[in-house]
Simulated scan of single mutants.
Amino acid sequence: MDKARADLPLVAGGDDPMWPSVPFAEQLAQRWRSAATSVGLITRHDVGHRPCFSGESPGSASPRFQHGGTPEADALLETAAWPCVLDALRNSG
Rank of each mutant, 00 (worst) to 15 (best):
F24I: 09
R64I: 15
S57R: 11
A88Q: 08
V85D: 04
P51S: 02
G93H: 12
H45T: 13
E26V: 13
L28P: 01
E26M: 14
A35E: 11
A12D: 02
S92L: 15
T70Y: 04
A12Y: 08
A80N: 10
V47I: 02
P58C: 11
G68I: 06
M1T: 11
P71M: 10
D46I: 03
R90W: 07
D74H: 12
L10S: 04
P20D: 15
Q27C: 07
S57N: 04
D2P: 05
Q30R: 15
S34L: 12
F65T: 10
P58S: 06
G40V: 08
V39G: 04
S21K: 07
G93V: 11
R31S: 01
A88P: 01
I42C: 02
P9M: 08
A25K: 00
N91G: 04
R50T: 14
G55T: 10
D2N: 10
F65S: 09
V11M: 00
D46G: 04
A25P: 03
H67R: 08
I42L: 04
L41F: 00
M1A: 14
S57I: 12
D15I: 04
H67Y: 15
G93W: 10
S21M: 04
Q66L: 13
A88F: 04
G68M: 09
H67M: 10
S62K: 14
